[in-house]
Nucleic acid binder design. Structure first.
Lengths: 131, 131
DNA sequence: CAGTATCCTTGCGGATACTG
DNA sequence: CAGTATCCGCAAGGATACTG
């Protein structure tokens, strides 16, 4: 279970798979696609995904060496599942992040449970951590 | 993207969602379903999932107080996506973990594909880290 | 360009003890 | 039963510098 879900574990992993969904991309292209990722992490994620059989690494013998990464057939099979989760996730996020200033619905009322004292103050979404 | 995938972030999260897929379960039942989870982590995951709208918490007024957790309708919509990922994941794991070839999750179709290429070493699989 | 190597911080998750 | 409160270790990730 978790072992399977761990396929997409690690920060940036879903983004990278997504970036490759339209075709192969080079290392520097992936860096530009996600401007705040560090080279170290990018390398790590790409190695992980390669080891897991999600993508393939292809070294092109050009004058400045370039490397292309492309999803494998199994890797492409993950895309529908990812979009499904993103779809549900979007609805959830809309529901609980209505808007901060312009007349949004108060999110605290979404649950019919007399909150004892636990103030679920958690609007700040500093950094997501997929795994 | 990651924000949506973060719905299932955190260790044990996929398992918990899965445990609730057949109906509501109590706190101690979830503990028994996953014997090695600690109360702290279980509480944390349940609170997270509740805050994200994936499940609902229901306090039953019994003499020993009991609490039930159940997936919301949106939470249930995650199940097909999870099974999809697990399905692909199983095929990937079978491919790189020789020895357990008898149905963990329904394979549905044996993918007869020769080893794609030189197996990248680095079979480190100490601990999965979904979130 | 496509990475390695190194240091350092963060916080997740485990362990343990305690409570209404 | 259903949690909360603390302490702690460890590894994931960020920052930075360097290489073929």
């Amino acid at each position: 279970m978790s072992k399977c879900m761990a396929l997409l574990s690690g920060l940036w992993t879903p983004e990278l798979v997504w970036c490759l969904s339209n075709g192969a991309r080079r290392f520097s292209e992936l860096r530009r696609d996600n401007p705040t990722i560090t080279a170290k992490v990018l390398t790590g994620r790409l190695r992980d995904l390669e080891a897991r059989g999600v993508l393939e690494r292809n070294v092109l013998a050009t004058s400045p060496p370039s490397v292309e990464y492309a999803l494998t057939s199994l890797g492409r099979e993950l895309l529908p599942a990812i979009t499904s989760i993103v779809e549900v996730g979007s609805r959830l996020l809309l529901r609980e992040t209505p808007g901060k200033a312009s007349g949004g619905v108060q999110p605290e009322q979404a649950n019919t449970r007399a909150a004892p004292k636990r103030a679920s103050q958690q609007s700040t979404d500093p950094d997501v951590q997929m795994g």
